[in-house]
Design a protein around this nucleic acid. Structure first.
Lengths: 178, 178
DNA sequence: GTCTATATCTTGATAGAC
DNA sequence: GTCTATCAAGATATAGAC
């Protein structure tokens, strides 16, 4: 699903990767919507666990955001896989409602986490919520182009620029002056 | 293709929208790869024409970039369509080589145009090429989330933030000081 | 839980008539 | 250029045995 999308994977693909018949997969996930929603829900759950792991280290907001970027870099490195949520977002109009719901939940969870860190980092700038949305969109987008060109620098460079623009003390001064 | 992707559209869809049999479509575009590559090539060509239209007005670099953003906003407004290139980028691993080639050409054309405007705007900052890549990724990514949440503000807010962060005089000062 | 067998549908693609 | 007819393949899904 992360490589070829919801429309691009089949029960047979899953079955082969596990070494069973495709009927066995149907037994656990009756419909493709069930399978897709379960995969997305599991993905979000794992992501939440890693967010908790980041928080546990009590990092500065800036370091927390860098660790967040690393989650995306790790997914991308050495594979054709991008963030499952980014992949499914592109296919949203064709997704069953249950899968769509899980995709939106991923955004809710991550944008909330990001907004909290951004609030600590730059309380006087643009709305933390808007910044969180833009940052996540940038990560998802640059992840796609990174894969398309097989250049992992696209993701890391874009993220670095964003964080740099954010935490520049001059920019904070500019925000305060408004 | 802009709504459901390369995998999500069929010859029958195209045929119905034109009012002919799907065989007639095969006559003009023998294979699906031919159809996909032609669509992407046509899309890039139209985009190039609009870039030329922007240039013809001799705008400031900042205004030119804003006009570029408007091209994306216009595509998004009131439909479920996103940029064809963004859509196909997500599906890149499953695309025929001929289609993939056209997708990459879209990036080459637009990133070059953007880099030129960014070079005029902020010669001392981060590499214009890297900024162009990040900006395009941000636009493609926020276009996806705009559609996913039916909130056109996501695209416009993200673009505005980027341009604002770029052209801040304080940021230019910061760049000069390095 | 897993299998074989089967049903049904859609898709990309071709043959050949008009 | 368009049509009807047809094909082969793959996908989702179910029935029923083990």
């Amino acid at each position: 699903m992360q490589e070829r999308g919801y429309q691009g994977f089949s029960f047979l693909d899953v079955a082969r990767s596990v070494g069973v018949s495709h009927v066995a997969v149907h037994h656990h996930f009756p419909s493709k919507a069930d399978l897709g929603a379960a995969a997305m829900a599991d993905y979000t759950e794992r992501f939440e666990a890693q967010l908790a792991r980041i928080d546990a280290a009590k990092p500065t907001p800036r370091r927390a955001l860098e660790a967040f970027v690393d989650l995306f870099s790790a997914t991308l490195s050495g594979s054709k896989r991008v963030c499952l949520c980014g992949m499914l977002t592109a296919e949203l109009p064709v997704l069953p409602a249950s899968v769509r719901r899980e995709v939106r939940r991923f955004y809710a969870v991550n944008e909330e986490w990001l907004a909290e860190r951004l609030r600590e980092l730059q309380p006087a700038g643009a709305s933390p919520n808007a910044l969180a949305e833009a940052f996540l969109a940038l990560l998802e987008g640059s992840m796609m182009t990174s894969r398309a060109f097989d250049e992992s620098t696209r993701l890391s460079a874009a993220a670095a620029w964003f964080l740099d623009a954010l935490s520049s003390p001059l920019r904070e001064a500019s925000a305060r002056r408004r």
